[in-house]
Amino acid sequence: ASNPDSSVLDLVSNAWAGFGAAFGPLVIFSLIWRGMNRNGAVAGMVVGALTVILWIYGPFQMNGMALNSWLFAIVPGFILSTIAIFAVSIMTGGPRESVSAKYREMELNLNK
């Protein structure tokens, strides 16, 4: 908002990239993979959001152009968030048994 050269569309686009990268993989994993845990979820949100922020506002360039000019920030954010969720969930031992039991219960209710 403080940059006179930016438009509302740019601001909204950047915000949706951040939300999509932080929460998109988290929602998908929570629906299809019972091995995700809280630590993996937090890691995915943090990595996705930070990736988008660095991709848009970081000092990195490719051929003299900002990275966001080459590839929309949600793409690397989504990919790195997915990797973080998977890796941290595996390294920290998966979800608690109470969460796994609830997942199985809901799965049975859906298959009726």
Rank of each mutant, 00 (worst) to 15 (best):
I53N: 04
V42F: 15
L110G: 14
N111D: 14
R104S: 13
N14K: 11
I74F: 14
N14F: 09
W16S: 00
S13P: 00
N39D: 14
A15G: 12
N68L: 00
G20D: 02
M106K: 13
L108F: 06
G35W: 01
M62N: 07
G58A: 12
G48W: 12
N37C: 09
L71R: 07
D10F: 06
G58R: 02
N109M: 12
V52S: 08
N109G: 02
S7M: 03
M106C: 06
R34G: 04
S81C: 11
I53P: 01
G64K: 05
L26G: 03
F19D: 02
N3L: 03
A41F: 13
S7R: 03
E107W: 01
K112P: 00
V8W: 06
G35T: 01
L26I: 13
K112D: 13
M45G: 14
R38G: 04
L67N: 06
N3G: 01
S98W: 03
D10Y: 04
S30E: 11
S6K: 05
A87M: 10
A17T: 01
G20N: 05
V46L: 15
L9P: 00
W70A: 07
E105M: 11
N109H: 07
G93Q: 10
M65P: 00
K102P: 00
A41Y: 09
F60C: 06
G77H: 06
L31C: 03
L110M: 10
A43Y: 07
P4W: 11
G93N: 08
A43V: 13
F72T: 01
A41I: 10
I56L: 13
N63T: 02
F72R: 04
A101L: 15
A17Y: 01
V75A: 13
I85T: 02
